[in-house]
Computed example of a mutant assay.
Amino acid sequence: MIDNPPAKRILVVEDEVWLAIELEDALREGGFDVIGPAASVRQALSLLNDERPDAAVLDVTLGGEKVTPVALLLKSIGIPFVLASASDAAELARHDCLADARNLGKPTDLVKLVEVVRGL
């Protein structure tokens, strides 16, 4: 009998409830386990303190704050991430930790999201 490898665990950081649910559902249907969704930097950092994802999907603007502390932590511990954000390239370029990240935009193509996360 062949055991299937455990599902990759993906952290989702998104403050808009319906978008968070869409991202979570698409990733679960794609065979991933989802950590979160986290709606704030504080919540995301707390989840990262308790669990270690294989990758992450980040929105850039969470209410009035930027996701940069989360991105910096992910980079420092070697966890890849992709952005699902309406932020444009100029906005992302202002933050070194986000400047070279792939941004799938909003609205996010959920099929493409699953495909990209599989490749992380």
Rank of each mutant, 00 (worst) to 15 (best):
V70A: 04
S85K: 08
L19R: 08
S46P: 00
V117K: 06
V13G: 05
A38D: 04
K75T: 11
G63K: 15
V70L: 07
N49V: 00
R28F: 01
N4V: 12
L120H: 12
L62E: 03
P107H: 09
L23S: 03
I77M: 13
Q43T: 10
L73T: 04
I21Q: 12
P69M: 07
L23K: 04
L98Y: 01
S46I: 03
E24G: 00
V70Q: 02
A38K: 05
T108R: 06
L113V: 11
T68M: 10
T68A: 01
A39I: 02
I2M: 13
K75L: 11
L120R: 09
D109S: 03
Q43D: 13
L92C: 10
P80G: 00
L19I: 13
A26G: 02
K66T: 14
L23C: 03
P5V: 14
G31W: 01
D88T: 14
K8N: 09
L45Q: 08
L45G: 00
A20G: 12
I77Q: 13
I79M: 07
V67G: 01
E22H: 06
G119P: 01
V17G: 01
D25V: 08
E51A: 13
D33N: 10
P80S: 03
H95M: 07
D25A: 11
A55K: 06
Q43M: 12
A20E: 04
L27P: 05
A26T: 07
A55F: 07
A99G: 13
A20Q: 07
A56P: 06
A7V: 05
K66S: 02
L19K: 02
V116R: 02
S46R: 13
F32D: 09
D96C: 03
R28C: 01
N4L: 14
L72I: 02
E29R: 13
I35P: 04
L47E: 09
E24A: 09
N4R: 14
A101S: 12
D109E: 11
L11V: 11
D59V: 08
E115V: 14
R52K: 14
A99Q: 12
G30I: 00
V116Q: 05
V60A: 04
P5A: 15
K112F: 01
Q43F: 00
A84I: 04
G78L: 09
G63P: 10
G119L: 11
V67W: 04
R52Y: 06
A86Q: 11
V111D: 14
E24V: 07
L120N: 02
A101K: 09
G31I: 08
G31C: 06
P37V: 10
E24R: 12
R28L: 05
A20W: 00
A86F: 10
N4Y: 07
A26E: 07
D33Y: 02
A99N: 09
D59G: 12
D3Q: 14
R102C: 05
S76R: 14
H95L: 08
C97A: 15
V70P: 02
L104D: 03
G36V: 03
E14V: 11
D109R: 10
S40D: 08
G63R: 14
S46A: 14
A84P: 11
V116H: 02
A7G: 04
L27E: 03
E16Q: 13
R52A: 01
A7P: 14
G36T: 06
D25R: 11
A90Y: 13
